[in-house]
Amino acid sequence: MAILPTAIDAPSGAGNRRPRSRARSDVASRTGASRLSWLGLVPFFVFIGTVFLVPIGFVVVQAFQRTTSGEAHRDPVTQQFVRATETHTTLANIKESLEGVYLSSLGTSVKLSAITAVLGAILGLLLAYAVVTSRGSLLKQVVSTAAAVTANFGGVPLAFLFIATLDANVGVVTLFLDKHFGLSLGDDLGVSLAGLSGLALVYLYFLIPLMVLVMMPALEGLKVQWAEAAENLGASRWQYWRWVAAPVLLPSVLGSLLLLFCSAFSAYATAYAINSSAPLVTIRISSVLSGNVLSGQENLGAALALNMIVIVLPLTVVYQLLQRRTSRWLA
């Protein structure tokens, strides 16, 4: 590590002292720097390796393994059980993870995430557009700050917020409707916080701000000149949107949609607090891995996690490709 600062310091140091030889020393130190510059990435790769790649590796390996054990005998002195165990490679975990309640929970998770992502994207895009095109800079600041806060607001605190608002027994809105209009939130209006529609509502609370947050820079990237140029060439408002703005925005809208989907797909604590039996794959994983009832099913948990990775991974690749397209116009 001692070499690193020296190598990096070299260009400016050399340049200051000997201006005439600047070009030469620059070249030399640049190659020196580039030879060692990868060192700067080491912490990043160590981090990615330990918190991302290694765990994924474990998940993949465990998903295809199962351990069977022979009869146990007790050692008369130590009192410990002695038994032969054998770990073998199998598709049994994957098969089990794609059956019955596990398959249906995966389906429900995908459905809920897709619906909330699309709704969140549409509403978030409209809100972001309204904010970007508004004249008040104060409004813009307030909304983007609020979006940054609420997009990161989730888990149990968010769940409690909704319980306090819409819970069938104590929700403020529930009691208000009942007292002033004689309406029951659940019976008359069909709103049930613990149901999937309730969960969707709670998810939207952080998905819409997330969409606003990621779309505002993209919308701000739409140059006024493009609209003016289109207008000068006789394009209608609709034609401008259809042929200029939409193609430029499309990659980032689709990319954001995927981000929202993954966000909703991986949500756990929020759903758990509102409905601890919510039929979602994340809740199944937690009951298999760190519950108190089902012991010894770690490999099934790994298989369930692998299913999620298999769904999210292609989306991540598409997201990266879309990002590249986005940056062509909206750098």
Binding site: G154, V156, S266, G291
Partner: peptide, 14 residues
Amino acid sequence: MERFVRVTNVRRLG
């Protein structure tokens, strides 16, 4: 977007 929050009462139900 997962928030890792522990729910107090979930403990050891097993």
